[in-house]
Design a protein around this nucleic acid. Structure first.
Length: 555
RNA sequence: GCGCCCGUAGCUCAACUGGACAGAGCAACUGCCUUCUAAGCAGUAGGUUUCAGGUUCAAGUCCUGACGGGCGUACCA
C-alpha cells in the first residue's frame, strides 16, 4: 500500500485541484481565466467530504449559469476510484466529492502508523521562531491576567512546533526602574516594621502579603543586620530573587518552561539603546524638545509625537522595546511573535516603525493581542488591581480549579474576545465542565482497551473495511481532519480552534461508543473497532498534548 | 474627540477567513444506568446574527454610517 504520510490532507487537496483544473482546460477555459481552485470541506456532511466553488466563480467570466458550468466540469472529471467517488453538483453550483472507502481506511492506517506524530506537518519546517510571552517584571506573583498570556503563548509555541518550526520561548523583563525600586522600598518598610521600627509605608508601594513574607525571610536570614541600609538595594535583590523563583514555579506548574530570559538591561550595556536614538536622529526622526528626546511618530500617521527619553534622562519603555525587537531580528529569527494584552497594543505601531527605520524587516514581527480576563465567581465579576493586595494569583486559581482546567479555560475562547473565567463552572468536577468531556472520552477508550487486553491477544492488523457503520465512518473522517485542525490553529494563532475540533471529535467518539460495541462483537469486527478506538485515543491525546493538558488513563 | 477590539439563543461562546439549513456548552423541559466509565446518551424548546444602507451568484463574515460595551489615547510599565 502506498503511504501518503507526508502529503496527507494536502495530498487530497492537490489531487482534486489537479483534476478540476484539467477538466476546466478540457472544456476550453483559458489558463489565465482559471480562478484559484479552493477546496473546502462542507459544514453539512450530506454535502460530501470536499467541495469546490469554481463553477460559481467562473459564472461571470464565462457568462453562463454556474450549474451548467459545473455540469460541464463534472462530465470531464474521471476521478481515481481509489480516492474519490464520482463528483456531484449541488445547490447553486457547488461540486461535491465524497472520499472513496479505500482512501478513508488507508487514512486510518496512517493515523495508527504515525501515532504520536500524527497531525504534525512540515509547513513551517526550518522556520526559526522567537516567541516572547509572559514578560512580567518580577514585582509580584503571576496573576490571572498573566495566565492568559502565558497559556496562549506556550500553546501557540506548541502549535508552531507541530507545524515544523523551531520555537524559542523567551521571557523579557526589567529589574531596574521605578517599579522595582518601589518593590525594594516596600520590602524594606515591611522589614523595618517586622523589627518594630516605626516606619511609613511608601506611597504607591506594593501591599501584597508576599512582601511581608519576603521581609520575614530577611529577618530570619540577617536578623537586624539590615536596619541601617542606606538604600533599598538588598531588599530589591532579595525580592527579585524570591519572586522570580516563584514565577518560574508557577509557570512550571502550568507546564511552561522558558528557553531564555532576556533582561532589558543588556540593551543598555551593549549600546543598542543608544544606537536606536542615533539612527533615528540621523534619519531626522528623533529630536529634542523640553529636555526630552522625541520620536517623530507623526511621520507615520499618529496624531502625536512620542517621548523616547524623558527629561529626567530615563527612557520610556518604547525605546528599549524597539531595541529589543531589533535585537531579536539580529539573532536571525524568521518570525518574532509577541503575546500582548489589549492594553499594550498602542506601543506596537511605534515598535514596528522603529525597527523598519533601523532597516529590519517588520514583516517578521507579529503580535498576538488578547483581550482581558474577567474572573467570575458566584455570578459576579471579581475586579482586580495588581498594586493593591486585591488580586487572585495563578497559583490560587490552580489550587482551586486545577492545572488542566486552568489551561483549558484560558484557551477555550478566541484571543480576540473577552474571556469570562467562571470559577464556579471550572470547579464543577463534573458535567458542567467542558475539560472533562475530552479527558473522559480518552479515559473511556483506555478503559476498554485495558479490558480487551485482558481477554485476548490480537495482532495489529485487522480488516478495516468492516467499519461501515455511519458512526464509524464519520468518526474516521473526523480523525482525518486533525492535521488540518492543527495547522489551522497554528496559522491563525488561535488555539481555541483546536479545542472546538477536539470537542467535535469527542462527540463523534461518544456516538460511536453509543452505537457500536467493541467487546463481545464478532472477532474481526472487534479487532477493527479496537483499532478505531486506539486511533481516536491517539488523536485526543495528541490534541490535548498540544494544549498542554493531560490525557488521563482513567478517571 | 481620535485609534484598536467586540456586539450571534436567557447566559458564556463557535462558525474552517465570502459559501449550502447560523452551531455547541450552561440554564429549562422529556426520556434513558442488570451490557465496554451516566464526568454519558437521545429528544424538545430557544434566532430578523444590535440597527440602517452598500458591494455580489452568495454576507454573521467585506465597505459606509448610526447605537451599545471594553481597552488605549502619559515625560506610567
Amino acid at each position: 500500500m502506498i503511504r501518503l504520510h507526508f502529503f496527507k490532507t494536502n495530498f487530497m487537496e492537490t489531487y482534486l485541484q489537479g483534476i478540476i483544473r484539467q477538466a476546466l482546460i478540457e472544456i476550453g477555459v483559458e489558463e489565465n481565466q482559471i480562478p484559484p481552485v479552493k477546496i473546502e470541506k462542507p459544514r453539512d456532511p450530506s454535502h460530501g467530504d470536499a467541495a469546490t466553488n469554481v463553477a460559481m466563480l467562473l459564472a461571470k467570466t464565462l457568462k453562463k449559469n454556474p450549474r451548467s458550468i459545473a455540469e460541464q466540469i463534472v462530465s470531464k472529471i474521471q476521478p481515481d476510484s481509489g480516492k474519490v467517488k464520482a463528483a456531484e453538483i449541488a445547490g447553486p453550483g457547488f461540486i461535491n466529492f465524497r472520499y472513496a472507502d479505500y482512501f478513508i481506511y488507508s487514512e486510518l492506517n496512517t493515523i495508527l502508523d504515525k501515532g504520536g506524530d500524527y497531525g504534525k506537518s512540515v509547513e513551517n519546517k526550518g522556520q526559526k521562531c522567537l516567541l516572547e510571552f509572559v514578560s512580567a517584571n518580577p514585582t509580584g506573583p503571576l496573576t490571572v491576567g498573566h495566565g492568559r498570556n502565558a497559556v496562549l503563548g506556550d500553546t501557540v509555541a506548541r502549535l508552531l512546533e507541530w507545524t515544523g518550526a523551531r520555537v524559542q520561548r523567551e521571557y523579557y523583563f526589567n529589574n531596574a526602574g521605578r517599579q522595582m525600586r518601589m518593590l525594594g522600598l516596600s520590602v524594606q518598610a515591611r522589614y523595618l516594621q517586622e523589627l518594630g521600627q516605626p516606619t511609613e509605608f511608601p506611597e504607591g508601594g506594593y501591599e501584597g502579603a508576599y512582601i511581608g513574607d519576603i521581609a520575614k525571610e530577611l529577618v530570619n536570614e540577617y536578623g537586624d543586620a539590615l536596619l541601617n541600609q542606606e538604600d533599598e538595594k538588598v531588599f530589591k535583590e532579595k525580592a527579585e530573587a524570591v519572586i522570580f523563583d516563584d514565577i518560574q514555579k508557577t509557570l512550571k506548574r502550568m507546564n511552561i518552561v522558558m528557553d531564555s530570559f532576556f533582561n532589558e538591561n543588556t540593551l543598555y550595556e551593549d549600546g543598542s539603546i543608544q544606537k536606536v536614538i542615533d539612527v533615528l536622529r540621523e534619519k531626522g526622526l528623533a529630536f529634542d524638545e523640553d529636555g526630552a528626546v522625541w520620536f517623530k511618530t507623526t511621520e507615520f500617521g499618529k496624531d502625536q509625537d512620542t517621548v523616547l527619553v524623558k527629561s529626567t534622562g530615563e527612557p520610556t519603555y518604547r525605546l528599549p522595546d524597539i531595541a529589543y525587537h531589533a535585537n531579536k531580528l539580529e539573532r536571525g529569527f524568521d518570525l518574532c511573535l509577541d503575546i500582548f494584552g489589549a492594553d499594550h497594543i498602542d506601543t506596537y505601531p511605534d515598535v514596528m516603525n522603529g525597527i523598519e527605520v533601523l532597516g529590519y524587516d517588520k514583516n517578521k514581527v507579529e503580535v498576538l493581542v488578547y483581550q482581558f480576563v474577567t474572573l467570575v465567581k458566584d455570578g459576579k465579576p471579581f475586579k482586580m488591581s495588581t498594586r493593591k493586595a486585591n488580586f487572585v494569583t495563578l497559583d490560587e486559581l490552580m489550587d482551586e480549579v486545577g492545572e488542566d482546567v486552568t489551561r483549558f479555560f484560558f484557551l477555550m475562547r478566541s484571543p480576540n474576545t473577552h474571556l469570562e473565567f467562571d470559577v464556579n463552572q471550572a470547579k464543577e468536577a463534573g458535567e458542567k465542565n467542558p475539560v472533562f468531556y475530552l479527558q473522559y472520552a480518552h479515559a473511556r477508550i483506555k478503559s476498554i482497551l485495558r479490558k480487551v487486553a485482558e481477554l485476548e491477544k490480537f495482532d495489529a492488523k485487522a480488516d478495516l473495511t468492516l467499519l461501515n457503520h455511519t458512526a464509524e465512518i464519520s468518526l474516521i473522517k473526523k480523525l482525518m481532519n486533525f492535521p488540518d485542525a492543527v495547522s489551522n490553529a497554528a496559522g491563525s494563532r488561535e488555539p481555541h480552534r483546536l479545542i472546538t475540533y477536539l470537542n467535535e471529535l469527542a462527540q463523534g467518539f461518544t456516538s460511536f461508543y453509543h452505537d457500536c460495541r467493541i467487546i463481545g462483537e464478532e472477532k474481526n469486527l472487534m479487532h477493527a473497532r479496537i483499532l478505531l478506538a486506539e486511533a481516536t485515543a491517539r488523536v485526543i491525546s495528541n490534541g490535548l498534548g498540544i494544549l498542554g493538558i493531560n490525557a488521563p488513563e482513567r478517571m
